[in-house]
Design a protein around this nucleic acid. Sequence first.
DNA 1: CGGTACATACCCAACGCTTGTTACGTACCA
DNA 2: TGGTACGTAACAAGCGTTGGGTATGTACCG
Lengths: 180, 180
Amino acid sequence: MLAARGFGGLTLRAVAGEMGATTGLVTHYFPSKRALVRHALEVLDRRSAGRPRPAEERVGQASGLVRLRAVLLDVLPLDGPGAANNRIWVGSWDVALADPELAAEHAARYRRARERMAGYVAEAQRAGELPAGPDAGDVAAAAQSFVLGLVVQALFAPEEFPPVRQVALVDGYLAGLAAG
Amino acid sequence: MLAARGFGGLTLRAVAGEMGATTGLVTHYFPSKRALVRHALEVLDRRSAGRPRPAEERVGQASGLVRLRAVLLDVLPLDGPGAANNRIWVGSWDVALADPELAAEHAARYRRARERMAGYVAEAQRAGELPAGPDAGDVAAAAQSFVLGLVVQALFAPEEFPPVRQVALVDGYLAGLAAG
DNA sequence: CGGTACATACCCAACGCTTGTTACGTACCA
DNA sequence: TGGTACGTAACAAGCGTTGGGTATGTACCG
C-alpha cells in the first residue's frame, strides 16, 4: 500500500481491502491511524534489519571496511523489494517531519545506523584500511549521507541509477575514503 | 504551510486561511489541488534558483571546485529559510513518488542539477583541482547524493548536524575527492 | 464623455464524497 | 460465561470541487 500510493494515499479502508477485510479489523488492532503508521514503520525497520541481506550475509567476520561496504549496499534499492522499502522510507519523511514524535524515532534510527557504521569505520582505521585521521563519527555520518541521497536519486531516476552504477558509486566513494 | 504541516496536512482551506482569504480564491487560480501543489513546487524551485545565495554569490568566476562547493553548500539547510525549503522538498518526495508526472519533474530537476555540477567538475578536472580519472557525471551524481542525504539527516537531527558541521562534512568530502 | 458589455477577482454556500472513529452485533473458542 | 476476533453500520467532520453571487475594473462604442 505505502510503496504504491505513499502516505498521502494511505487509508484504513484501502489497507483493510488489501487484506480482504474491513475497517473493523484494522481498528480492532490499532487505536488510531497514527498508531498504524507507527507500527508500519517499526515493522519496516525490523524487517529491514532481519531480512536476508544479499550483501552483508556473506561477510561474516570480515574486515571493518568490507562490513561498512556491506551495510551501505544493503540500504540501496538494488532490487524490487529494496526499492519498495525505500519508497516507503522516503515517503515517511513527509509525515515524520510534521510529527515530532515520529521525527524523534527517525532521528534515533539514523543515529543507531551511524553508530553502527562508526564502529566499522574505527575497526577499519585500526586495521589500516582507512586513514586514521578523520573522526569515525564524521566518516559514518558522511557515508550515511551518501547512501541516503543515492537512494533518493535512484528512486526518481532508476534508469540512470541501475544497480551496477549504484554499487560502483558506493565503491568509488569508499575508494576515495581509503585514499584519504 | 508545507514546511509546517507537510504535504499530508495541506488543505485548500488552510492555505486560504493563511492568506486571510477563502477557498474560492484558491480555486479561482488553480483548477485543482494537484495543480496547486505543482505550482508550489515550481515556485519553490524557481525561488531556490533565484534567492540570495550566501555561498555562491561571492564566487563569481572562480574555479570549478570553488563553484562546485558553493552549489553544494547552497543546498544545505544552513539557516531557517533553508531548513524550511528543505522540509518542503523532502516532504514532496512522498507525493511525487506516488504521482508519475511529479516524479518525472523531480527527476528532471535533479538531472539538471547534476549536469550543472558535472560542468564544474569537468572544469575542476581540467584545472587540475580534481583528479582527471573519474567520470565527471559520476562525481556529480555522487556529490549530489552526498548533499541530499546530508539534508535529510540534518533535518531530523539538527543538533547533531549544526551548520558548521554540515559545512565541514562537505569540505571533508571535497577534500577526499581531490585526494582520491 | 457617458454608458453599456464584459472580464476579472473574490466571497459565499453548498454539494457529494471520503475520511477516521465509534458503537454494536455476531461468531468462535476456552 | 466470557473474552477474543471480526463484520456491519453509522457517525460527524473534513475534504476537494462546483456554482452562483457581487463588487471592481476595463474596453468598446455612440
